[in-house]
């Protein structure tokens, strides 16, 4: 039901009256019952594609979560080790200890470059609440399998392109094989990334993905935004680079979706 319809119905004060919103493309599912939010939420940002913005999303989502006063860390599981590039300019609060697993900034946003043992990282973080974004490799590999198995949530970025629907089907099949049965209930969420509404192909693929995964598509796509590239070039997150850009709002929306305020975590966000 669109928000305009809800407001109309409130104004009508006609309890008997029912409305059929024929234009609401998303029926936010009432069936999706999420497990209560764990103390440390582990989100795997996974895709079988390169260039869909996994690393960028993982880094900037951690930054966005950090702005919400959550302790947030991004962990690089991809041998290309590109995550660190997003954090080059991040001032560390303490002299870096070579053995320290997570490199924290003053905003309690941290990152773990490739090569650390993910299990040990999670172990180290689980003493306090927060959220971890796993930047997984694109190839089907033991590391990916392990990440998908461990994660509480899987966030799949999809590029808005004509093959988007195919890509979604492929990863759905993979997840069905690899995810632990106990966690099947929390199925992957999708986000259309690098979206530019001016392109017809982008709009059409967004509609396709939406019809395919329904409510599991996060509310709005993440815009293709030059600010993300500039931020990477400067080695910092986009919130610092261009706080007024749309992509900051898009990322916040995803964080809202993943991290509902504690206390009503089990409730659906519809």
């Amino acid at each position: 039901m669109g928000p305009d319809i809800s407001r109309l119905l409130r104004a009508l004060r006609a309890p008997e009256f029912k409305y059929r919103d024929l234009q609401a493309p998303i029926r936010r599912s009432r069936t999706r019952d999420r497990a209560p939010r764990p103390r440390l939420l582990i989100v795997a940002v996974s895709s079988l594609d390169r260039g869909v913005g996994r690393t960028t999303l993982a880094a900037n989502l951690a930054a966005a979560a950090g702005q919400r006063r959550e302790r947030a860390a991004a962990v690089d599981l991809d041998p290309r080790n590109e995550l660190r590039l997003h954090f080059r300019a991040q001032p560390a609060i303490a002299p870096q200890d070579a053995d320290e697993l997570v490199r924290w900034s003053e905003r309690s946003v941290g990152y773990v470059p490739f090569g650390r043992d993910p299990a040990a990282v999670i172990e180290a973080l689980s003493d306090r609440s927060g959220v971890v974004f796993l930047d997984t490799p694109a190839e089907a590999s033991p590391a990916l399998e392990q990440a998908l198995a461990e994660a509480d949530e899987v966030l799949v970025p999809v590029r808005a392109e004509s093959a988007a629907a195919e890509k979604v089907r492929a990863i759905e099949a993979l997840l069905a094989r690899w995810r632990r049965p106990a966690w099947r209930r929390t199925r992957a969420r999708y986000v259309v990334n690098l979206f530019d509404g001016r392109r017809r192909a982008d709009r059409e693929s967004l509609a396709q993905v939406r019809s395919l995964v329904g409510a599991r598509l996060v509310a709005q796509p993440v815009q293709q935004d030059e600010a993300l590239r500039v931020a990477l070039a400067h080695g910092r997150c986009v919130q610092d680079e261009a706080p007024g850009s749309q992509v900051v709002a898009d990322l916040e929306k995803i964080v809202d979706d993943l991290l509902p305020p504690r206390g009503r975590a089990a409730k659906d966000v519809s």
Binding site: A227, S245, Q246
Partner: peptide, 14 residues
């Protein structure tokens, strides 16, 4: 909620 997109690929929200 609205967004401006510029020719150089940047955006602004508002």
């Amino acid at each position: 909620p609205a967004m401006l997109r510029f020719a150089d690929g940047r955006t602004a929200r508002g």
